[in-house]
């Protein structure tokens, strides 16, 4: 059963996203709103991983066939400046979307099993992931004109 692999994948992806949110928050701490929002969202991601934990065990976490390349490809160190902020938020956006679609797939599988508890976990988390994406988009839309047109 591949559900175990996917649960393991999402578990890692959420923890990586949490770490990335924290790094971006620290790296752009002079943007007070980014700093606080990133820390708040990092906590959400950690809580998501915590909720997944029991299911990862329940379905037997086989090591994912592939390492989570997404994280390493997209994100390593934060950049600086207005454009750097935009690029970092864009990386977070892609990572959050990877989580988002994983929640969707796990939700589908949970209905198929059926596993009511897993479905409840998906329900309580996927909305937050969607809001994370929405926040990233809102913040990038706000920052883009200034960063792309007039930032030094």
């Amino acid at each position: 059963m591949h559900l175990a692999n996917y649960l393991g994948y999402l578990h890692k992806a959420e923890l990586h996203l949490a770490e990335a949110f924290r790094k971006v928050g620290e790296g752009h701490a002079a943007e007070a709103d980014v700093y606080h929002a990133c820390n708040t969202l990092a906590q959400q991601c950690e809580a998501h991983a915590g909720k997944l934990g029991p299911f990862v065990e329940r379905y037997g976490e086989g090591a994912p066939a592939e390492p989570d390349r997404l994280y390493h490809e997209l994100f390593d160190e934060t950049r600086s400046g207005g454009l750097g902020l935009l690029r970092d938020l864009q990386d977070l956006y892609l990572m959050a979307n990877a989580c988002d679609i994983s929640w969707t797939m796990i939700g589908q599988a949970a209905q198929g099993v059926p596993d009511r508890e897993l479905l409840e976990a998906v329900d309580s988390c996927e909305g937050q992931t969607a809001t994370q994406i929405k926040w990233l988009k809102t913040r990038m839309k706000q920052a883009a004109p200034q960063a792309l047109l007039v930032a030094s």
Binding site: A30, E31, A32, G81, G82, T138, K141, Q142, A144, P145, Q146, V150, A151, S152
Partner: peptide
């Protein structure tokens, strides 16, 4: 009208960053 209006603290931040 492409994004929410820039709030005061962000205006000062853009000034701080020189844009």
């Amino acid at each position: 009208h492409w994004a929410p209006p820039t709030h005061a603290m962000q205006i000062f931040r853009y000034a701080e960053q020189g844009s």
